[in-house]
Design a protein around this nucleic acid. Structure first.
Lengths: 359, 359
DNA sequence: CTGCGACCTGCAAGCGCTTGCAAGGAGATG
DNA sequence: CATCTCCTTGCAAGCGCTTGCAGGTCGCAG
């Protein structure tokens, strides 16, 4: 370090003025010389001197101060319901990947699914003058809050569509996700099927239900009525619903669609407890393609949820928005079925007896 | 909205001066009235008027501008190697939880394990005047870079200790993590054990190795020599190493410690391919307690890695640091063994089907 | 020799907020 | 009634940077 100034933690950093003084020029000139966009305005010899001095003093532009003038902070807020949710991570990852190439950096916060917190957070982020905002919510956030925020700052909703509000969103076609599972069951030759329903106020689940039911009907499958809903889309609830289904249903399905992977795992656990074999007695499919689902026994048939892509696309939309695009269309990505060992063609009815005597 | 001003996207937001004008006071007074810490300086009646006007105008303080004066941006940088890594997520989550209660918000970025990128990112974050920095790296980051950054900004390294550099860190005792597995094997009565080694330049793995070997020796177990190392700590590499172990080793272990869960899964896959039963022929333990390891068949014995706690503690250390604490001690958290079905007492030599006669 | 761009550089006015200091007024005190 | 204090409020000077505008120099054509 050739820096003459104190480098301790409290030592002041070099400012534009320091550099200017060092080379005997005005701050304006230094400012221009250091900005690649305007450095052509300054004599190249001077520019050299300035850059040399800047380097020597360890000058680093102050992004805060700059943004005060320019109005851009080069930050984007990412507001998630719960960072602990497995589906959130890849989305955040995708966002970070996309924005980082623009020199924009994501600021993250979580709402814990509390809409008051969400409103506060939006407010806080506006205070921070973020250039854009991406909201990641499973449940429907307060539409009024969202749309009023959208009027102030470029905003995109990811993972969750917002019907009837003119805010661009990036979602996965959950309806299609349900359909492909039903199609898969039909292709395998199943006739009687059922769903294990997640919390219905989360659109992802209700859309999967719709898609599954519609495709099942189209393919002439008999779908047993949905007996109950999971309070949370967890393994425990999946297990509970599977028990309920086998106890109370008016018929027995040969294939069951659990609306996410943890619930599917719970369903498999339940079946095992009751002495049924998966997939021989009952096929099970889940959704999301969580890590390790492939190595479960049996490997879980599931629907891959392209989280990274959602994040990437959401960031791209946000960027287009803050580049003053008038209107940007929402993006809908396709989920894709990943068939594995937990689904297979149904055996004859005979083998379905209480579970003993398979094979 | 009673706001008379334009609310379109380009409309200016209300500033302190606007509020001051509205109530006919100076900006200074308004500033004081709105800061809970100094609002006692202003007459309570005036304060009421100010707050009312602020609310009416939809005034929101500009954090950027404020930080220009105060020198604090209320942000903390979180620099991770790769947001896609499963162990990173809970740490980030823990960090967010801790800092949010201080009104601090995390800014995240990833290095892709590239130390040039790391240096740039640190620079960039300094430009943004972050109040503190938390570095999450699996591999040893350049110590010079780290320690010079630490001189400028409160910095803590998480998940990874930094020997010989005076920078506080928050880590999990990986050595102990290895020990508890060896102890567990010994308690079950195993005599011949082995490890599947992860990339040795990642300290977590080399420490696990040390711990395991030391404890094994202490308990009188025979540990087969480590034949090779994983290029990456993945399932595929775990599978490869397990094959290699059974082919080349001078003896056959009855229990194997795979240094993380994906490798353990790979090991199980390999054993299944070779016709060995887990845990009856060979017990397998992993490390990290990833989601779903519990429902694998067999449930995977593993070592729980307290990621959320690491993040939380790292944030706490950082906060103490930026509150001008002179020196803050590093934190070391204890991993804990989660015994499940993939480990059991060894059977007699006779039952070791594929293997002729170990023991 | 005058005039006119082209090219560089500096001035000064902010961006929206904080804060040390001083000033004004109202009570309180001797 | 003069003096002192406490309580409120305003002034003004920034924090570190950008930017419209003006001023200066120089080369060159008229």
């Amino acid at each position: 370090m050739t820096t003459p100034t104190d480098l301790t933690i409290s030592g002041k950093r070099a400012t534009l003025a320091d550099v200017a003084r060092e080379v005997g020029l005005s701050p304006s000139t230094v400012s221009r010389a250091l900005d690649p966009g305007r450095s052509s305005m300054v004599n190249s010899a001077t520019r050299e001197r300035i850059m040399e001095a800047a380097g020597r003093l360890g000058y680093r532009p102050d992004v805060q101060a700059r943004s005060l003038m320019t109005g851009r902070t080069q930050t984007i807020a990412v507001i998630a319901a719960d960072l602990g949710n497995t589906w959130v991570t890849p989305i955040v990852h995708g966002i970070a990947s996309r924005v980082s190439v623009e020199g924009i950096v994501p600021i993250i916060a979580e709402t814990n699914d509390d809409s008051a917190v969400l409103a506060n957070l939006i407010d806080h982020m506006l205070s921070r003058r973020v250039d854009g905002m991406i909201i990641l919510a499973a449940r429907l956030p307060d539409a009024a809050v969202i749309s009023s925020a959208a009027r102030i700052v470029p905003l995109v909703v990811a993972a969750r569509g917002l019907p009837a509000v003119d805010v661009p969103s990036v979602t996965v076609d959950d309806r299609l996700g349900g359909e492909v599972v039903a199609e898969h069951f039909a292709d395998l030759g199943h006739q009687v099927v059922a769903q294990l329903m997640g919390p219905p106020d989360v659109s992802n689940f209700s859309l999967r239900r719709e898609g599954f039911s519609a495709a099942a009907k189209r393919r002439g499958l008999r779908e047993l009525p949905i007996l109950g809903e999971a309070a949370l889309p967890t393994q425990e609830e999946g297990r509970r619903l599977m028990h309920q289904l086998l106890t109370d249903a008016t018929g027995r399905p040969t294939a069951v669609f659990a609306q996410n992977d943890p619930m599917a795992v719970g369903a498999i656990v339940a079946l095992r407890e009751l002495g049924f074999a998966v997939p021989d007695d009952i096929s099970i499919a889940g959704s999301n393609d969580m890590p390790l689902t492939e190595v479960l026994t049996p490997g879980l048939t599931t629907v891959r949820y392209p989280g990274w892509e959602v994040g990437h696309a959401a960031a791209a939309v946000a960027i287009r928005l803050l580049d003053r695009a008038e209107h940007v269309d929402s993006v809908i990505l396709d989920p894709v079925l990943v068939p594995r060992a937990s689904t297979t063609a149904p055996l004859g009815a005979a083998t379905l007896a209480g579970g003993e005597n398979v094979d």
